[in-house]
């Protein structure tokens, strides 16, 4: 696939919230969270298939998630459910408001560098980081 630059915006999804209530460690929560929703044109241009794994990288870090292709058009913008996966990409630098940039993350997509991590593996990365 070709590299693709997007602005990532995190959002809330009811099915993800439901899965979170059932447990952060469940496969349902991982499926509903480790996700990036792309504009169809963007996905086509970069050669990203619906459901394929991609690496999303920002200046703060990178994470492997599954790509989804949206019905709605939003070129240049990609949406990720707010989760420990998207939080790998959010910068530790904050401005005067001290609010992290959860909804405007400059990111690059490339071929998946590995599998979508389980939440325990993300936690291990945090503890060892």
């Amino acid at each position: 696939m070709a590299e693709l630059s997007v602005l990532v915006v995190t959002f809330r999804d009811i099915f993800q919230s439901e899965a979170q209530e059932a447990g952060r460690y469940g496969e349902e929560y991982r499926k509903a969270s480790a996700l990036i929703l792309l504009d169809r044109g963007d996905a086509d241009r970069a050669g990203i298939k619906d459901g394929s794994a991609v690496t999303v990288a920002s200046d703060a870090g990178s994470v492997v998630v599954n790509a989804g292709v949206d019905q709605e058009s939003h070129p240049g913008v990609a949406f990720m459910p707010n989760s420990p996966w998207s939080n790998q990409l959010v910068s530790g630098q904050v401005g005067p408001s001290k609010i992290p940039e959860f909804k405007r993350i400059e990111a690059r997509l490339s071929s998946a560098s590995g599998p979508v991590l389980k939440i325990e593996e993300l936690l291990l990365g945090i503890v060892q980081g």
């Binding site: 703060a60 945090i126 980081g129």
Partner: peptide, 16 residues
Amino acid sequence: SDPVSSLPAAFARKLA
């Protein structure tokens, strides 16, 4: 609350 999940990883690391 679960700040290790909801904070950016950079801050979760500090909490850890």
